[in-house]
Write a protein that binds this DNA or RNA. Structure first.
Lengths: 182, 182
DNA sequence: GGGGCCATGTAACCCGTTACATGATTGA
DNA sequence: TCAATCATGTAACGGGTTACATGGCCCC
C-alpha cells in the first residue's frame, strides 16, 4: 500500500486538500502508523486525478494559492476497497532508541539516562495525546486502532518506569565484565 | 544511525562475516527493531575497511568463496561509542495492518477476520520466539530490550484476543451507518 | 533432482524525504 | 519583527531494497 492508495483512504473520511491530507499524516490518527510528506502527497493527488479516481474543486483565496479540494469518485472508492482485499505488507519498525538501549554498556557517561528518559517521555506523551481525544461518533475500526495504540504507549511507558532504576544500575560501566588480561 | 555504523555495533559482539551480520539483522535480536540486507551491508563493510575502522581476515574455503571475517579495530570501537553520544533519531513505524484495521468497515467480506488473525498470530509468534531464548550471560542492555520486546508482543496479542469478537461484530457491514437518502 | 544453505558482491531501481521556490496573513 | 500557519508544487538527492550474477555442498 503506497501513499497514492492511502490518499484514497484518507478521502473516504471526507474531502480534503493536499495540505489537509498531510496534516492527517502528521498530526491526525495516521501519524502513529503511517507517514507521508508533501513530496509524495502532491504528486500522488496529481496521478489520482489523471486516473479519474478523484475530482477536484478549486476555491479561490486571496493571498494564498487557490485551495484545491479533492473528492473521491465512485471509481476511487472502489479502487480503495479493492486494495483492502490484498494482504497487508508486514509492519516495518526501526528504532534507534532500542539500538542505543541494547548497547547500554557502551554509552558515554550520562547518555543512558538521557536516552532512556527521552524515550519514556515519548511513550508517555503519546499515551496522553490519545487520552485527550474525543469519543464522539468514532467508527469501530478507528476506535479499535486508537485503543490498541493507547495500550501500546501506556504499556511501554509503564514498563520503562518500573525497570528504570534496576536497568541503569546494572549498566554502570563499573559493572562491565572486564576484558581478558586487564 | 546508518547501516554502516550499526555494523560496527554488531562487531562489538564479536567478529563476523558479512553473511553472519546479515543473519543478525534477519534472525538475531536486531530483526525486531532494525533491518538491513546484503545490498547495504557489503558496501558498508567495504567502506569501514577503507576507513580503518575494521580489519579483515580471509579464511579459504573449498567450494564457497573465501569467508571474510571482519574484526573491529580500536578506532572502530571508538567510532561506535562516539556515535552513541549523539541523540537517536525518532522511531519510525509503518503498519499496513493498522491501516487495514482502521478501515475495517470498508473491507470486503471475510477480509477483516483474515487480516486480524494474521496480525494476532504475528504478535503471538514473536512473543513465543523471545520466550524460547536462553538467559545465559545476557548483558543488561540486551536483556532490557528483549524483555521490553516481549512485553510489547504479548500485550498486543492479548489485547487483540480480548477484543476480537466485539470488534468484528461492530464492524459488520450491516451495522455501518447508512449514507444519506439510502 | 531439487531446494535450501553457505558466501560474496554489484547495479538498477524505487519510493520517499529534504530542500527549494513563493508569498500573504496572523498572532506573540 | 519574527515565527508560524496557510497553501501548492518541483527537483535533487539518498538510503535502502530487489534482483542479478556465480557456484558448490548437503540433505531429503
Amino acid at each position: 500500500m503506497d501513499v497514492k492508495t492511502l490518499c484514497l483512504g484518507v478521502l473516504t473520511l471526507g474531502d480534503a486538500s493536499g495540505y489537509e491530507i498531510r496534516k492527517q499524516f502528521e498530526e491526525g490518527p495516521f501519524a502513529h502508523f503511517f507517514q507521508a510528506s508533501y513530496g509524495s502527497i502532491y504528486p500522488s493527488l496529481g496521478r489520482l486525478l489523471d486516473e479519474g479516481l478523484v475530482s477536484v474543486t478549486e476555491h479561490a483565496q486571496d493571498g494564498k494559492p487557490d485551495k484545491k479540494v479533492y473528492n473521491l469518485t465512485p471509481a476511487g472508492r472502489a479502487r480503495f476497497t479493492e486494495a483492502l482485499g490484498d494482504l497487508p505488507a508486514p509492519d516495518s519498525f526501526r528504532s534507534e532508541f532500542l539500538v542505543y538501549l541494547f548497547f547500554a554498556e557502551l554509552m558515554p557517561e550520562g547518555q543512558l539516562e538521557t536516552v532512556f528518559d527521552a524515550y519514556h517521555k515519548h511513550f508517555q506523551d503519546m499515551a496522553d495525546v490519545i487520552e485527550g481525544l474525543s469519543f464522539d461518533r468514532v467508527p469501530p475500526g478507528r476506535m479499535f486502532v486508537r485503543r490498541m495504540g493507547h495500550t501500546f504507549y501506556k504499556t511501554m511507558a509503564d514498563y520503562m518506569e518500573q525497570h528504570r532504576e534496576e536497568f541503569i544500575a546494572e549498566s554502570e560501566p563499573a559493572k562491565r565484565v572486564p576484558k581478558a588480561a586487564e
